[in-house]
């Protein structure tokens, strides 16, 4: 592996990580505008993070080392996953580290520690959040895998680089199976990131909350890491979906012009995705908690239908 491509790989991961809070800001500002409010601006998440990094940590009296260790695991596993999803440049040496399945597993590792941290203090809120998070993510997993399956059968690979190149190199054909996979993947992304209609990221004390319940006891830099990881995860999923379904514009070679083009294309597509998300979040109401399994099983059924239509309509003709 050459030094330049390694540098580019790290650089694009840094871009993704640094842009993640702004992406969260874009969603909240767009939502505010849609609700006739002014909003705090797209940089507000960054300001929050900087403020939190400067604050002293207050730990609960019975917090164990798991509680202090978890934010670092969550943060690093999420970044590791993010660094395998290329926003700008397709051919990167480190994308061999983890294929799509390993990427999902890295996120699962982050979630495992997040849930453990929720259980550590021993309050009902933490346990509740952990229980629900693990339950719903378990139901989301088969749907996620199914939609990855639909894509990887065409490309004969689960390597992101190969999958993106495959999409770029095949002539554009109407493939209904991809539409199914996309819908399923979007539904899973909404659930995994705790957005409306599955979870409401803006509530802090509500009996139906999931993500916030687990990090209720965190403060200072620990909280900042947890929040930042959640923002990175949102950007990661958006980039993953863009890469898999709409990769056009991403740079194939490591030239400066190509990368600059890739950056512009990525930003445009990402912001489009985020605006769509804020529209959905404004338009829809949160589901009742026990309708979430129905939502996720629908995602699974759609992905499976995608697979079946792929076999029926796209192979053999």
């Amino acid at each position: 592996m050459s030094g330049t491509s390694l540098f580019l790989q790290i650089a694009q991961a840094v871009v993704l990580v640094l842009f993640a809070p702004i992406a969260a800001g874009v969603v909240s500002t767009a939502k505010a505008r849609l609700q006739n409010r002014r909003g705090a601006g797209v940089l507000q998440p960054w300001r929050n993070l900087i403020k939190l990094f400067g604050k002293q940590v207050v730990l609960a009296e019975n917090a164990s080392w798991i509680f202090r260790f978890a934010p670092y695991v969550v943060f690093t596993a999420t970044i590791m996953a993010a660094s395998c999803v290329p926003p700008l440049l397709v051919h990167t040496p480190l994308s061999l580290t983890a294929d799509v399945i390993a990427l999902v597993a890295l996120l699962a590792l982050a979630r495992f520690f997040l849930a453990l941290a929720g259980m550590d203090i021993g309050t009902a809120f933490g346990g509740m959040g952990a229980s629900r998070e693990m339950t719903f993510s378990a139901l989301a997993e088969p749907a996620m895998l199914m939609s990855v399956f639909v894509l990887s059968i065409g490309a004969q690979s689960t390597n992101l680089t190969t999958m993106i190149s495959h999409t770029l190199n095949t002539p554009i054909v109407l493939q209904p199976s991809l539409a199914f996979a996309l819908v399923a993947m979007l539904m899973v992304a909404v659930a995994e990131n705790g957005r409306i209609p599955v979870d409401n990221p803006t509530t802090h004390l509500e009996l139906t909350m999931i993500h916030e319940a687990m990090i209720l006891e965190y403060s200072g830099r620990h909280l900042a890491l947890m929040e930042w990881a959640a923002m990175i995860k949102l950007t990661l999923f958006a980039t993953l979906i863009i890469d898999l379904f709409l990769p056009w514009g991403i740079s194939i070679d490591a030239s400066l012009a190509g990368v600059a083009m890739g950056l512009v294309a990525w930003l445009l597509k990402l912001i489009g995705f985020l605006l769509g998300l804020s529209l959905v979040e404004t338009y829809l109401a949160k589901l009742r908690l026990f309708e979430v399994p129905e939502f996720l099983s629908t995602a699974f059924v759609i992905a499976f239908l995608g697979l079946l239509t792929h076999y029926m309509l796209e192979i053999g003709t």
């Binding site: 061999l96 580290t97 004969q156």
Partner: peptide, 11 residues
């Protein structure tokens, strides 16, 4: 390697 790869040490 173009099908799938995983490297735990690098991760």
């Amino acid at each position: 390697v173009s099908h799938a790869s995983y490297s735990a040490p690098v991760a």
